[in-house]
Design a binder for these strands. Structure first.
Lengths: 206, 206
DNA sequence: CCGTGCATGGCACTCGGTGTCAAGAGGTAA
DNA sequence: TTACCTCTTGACACCGAGTGCCATGCACGG
């Protein structure tokens, strides 16, 4: 019954509390609605104090949204790992599809989280903030890979924005179908629609 | 010194208080930063109580963001007023450009507001919420005008999202250039980049 | 002149979020 | 074993956003 020997007891305990907290939060929030649950309630359910809750999560929204927050890093990594000469539409399609598929894999939990986020205004707002940062990241990565100056050329911002628009549409469909639709196929269809703009790479600076 | 005769005194007073409030808020927030200003402070500067502030604005962010909130209705109206047979890229270009130009007209105030929003996380989040609603509105309008079913076809959501991506890029540039760049010209450049996707109208449902 | 309606201010209250501090648990060295 | 150190925690006080409630006052219509 040994886990990693080089993992200290304190670290394991931290993970345990963190899981306890997000589990309690997810259950309560999905059950009663976002506004009807207080942080004291979540903390009490997890067996800790409110103060401790804020030592693990920065806000009430965070405990839900953090679950999807890794996708930003995943996207940037996916884009960075694509071969340099690849068409933008193909590279960006994988940028979105790979993390999306990874998320949909443990779909038991992911689906519930996504549905909760999309249906709750406060959570959706936080999620949009994340996407906003992802867009800047992707735009920077794109500009670098294409040798464009992000300060004069609109393309990186636009292409990143289009990719995330596709991502958002896919997420909505997937959530709306209760996970029945295939995320990878949805992504392909969305990118088929936006590809003509992504691959028309004529620089748009004056 | 008569204003509109059919406008009651109470209504005029309401407008006056509202202007006083948003003026005070804008000045204080731009000066000291969003978090460093309390609502009591804003209300006191405007000569009313905190309770009254919340009778005019739903939140601290609202007093700033509401300034741009009309653009949503403006966009939908602009789109609805375009001739039915028009190419989507042209119709959507006007959808974005017209309200944008109207906003940039009283640029003294608009520029300050936009810069404040884009540089403040909380305000930007609220603004993204608005854009999110605008996207749904535009998608609905687009679906109707093109005779597409928004539940099966991805195009309306994607096209609306692309248009707003362009809008956001334009807004950033305009703000970043301190109003030097021409919003209309920026909009044209952005739409030149995304037009190939907007006009490739092949329905994308299975 | 008198009711009616509306805007306001004041107050108490809830809740999200933060700073501070003292106490406990575990790990380490003498 | 004892002394020490670090990390985590709970408790408490505190701030600010936002809301419900009620009494007051001012404009308007009769």
């Amino acid at each position: 019954m040994s886990s990693r020997p080089d993992v200290t007891m304190a670290q394991r305990k931290r993970r345990l509390v963190s899981n306890e907290l997000s589990e309690a939060a997810l259950q309560l929030l999905a059950l009663k609605g976002f506004d009807a649950v207080t942080i004291d309630e979540i903390a009490a359910t997890a067996g800790v104090s409110k103060r401790t809750f804020f030592r693990y999560f920065a806000s009430k929204e965070d405990v839900v949204v953090q679950f999807l927050a890794d996708m930003g890093a995943g996207m940037r990594a996916a884009l960075a790992s694509r071969p340099l000469g690849e068409q933008p539409s193909v590279a960006l399609r994988h940028t979105v599809r790979d993390p999306m598929a990874a998320c949909a894999d443990h779909s038991e939990r992911a689906l519930r989280v996504v549905q909760l986020i999309l249906r709750t205004a406060a959570l959706r707002a936080r999620f949009l903030e994340h996407q906003d940062r992802w867009r800047d990241d992707l735009a920077a990565e794109l500009a670098q890979r294409l040798g464009l100056d992000p300060d004069t050329d609109l393309y990186p911002q636009l292409a990143a924005g289009m990719a995330l628009t596709a991502f958002d549409a896919v997420l909505r469909r997937w959530s709306g179908s209760d996970g029945a639709d295939d995320p990878a196929e949805l992504t392909d269809r969305a990118f088929a629609a936006i590809a003509p703009a992504l691959d028309a790479v004529g620089p748009s600076n004056p």
